[in-house]
Amino acid sequence: MIPGFPDAQPVAGIIGGLMIGVAAAIMLLGLGRIAGVSGLAARAVGFTQGGAPRSVAIAFILGLPLGALVVALLSGGVPASYPAPGLLIFAGLIVGYGTRLGSGCTSGHGVCGVSRLSRRSLTATALFMGSGFATVAILRLAGLL
């Protein structure tokens, strides 16, 4: 517990974060590749020819729900609530387009690139964090949250 932030889960956050970091390290040291979910997803469905072998991309992408399922079964359910479908469709469209245009998302730029101190990834991460903060601030000021 963190005083003042009753909803925060720092311990679960760090443990989950360590698992994500080890996962990305397996991709880097095992396969010599960046564990970037947006790029691997695009590769898995055939939207790009470059990058990892398609079989590797498909295996990684299938692993995401597989690992999620294991945690859900062991923990007896995972709480989650979602915005309205219309908002999700709009959000999904610009997340898909934006991550391809910007060559990465929270995993490739945020986890892998920032830990590498890549200038491109540090810039991208600052920009998507900044626009995320600004977007939610606007939603709140507009009374939509």
Binding site: Q9, A12, G13, I15, G16, G17, L18, M19, I20, V22, A23, A24, I26, M27, G30, L31, A35, V37, A59, F60, I61, L62, G63, L64, P65, L66, G67, A68, V70, V71, A72, S75, V78, S107
Partner: peptide, 12 residues
């Protein structure tokens, strides 16, 4: 790697 990544995301 994908499975560990997915598990970490959910756990956190």
């Amino acid at each position: 790697s994908g499975s560990l990544f997915g598990a970490g995301l959910v756990l956190s």
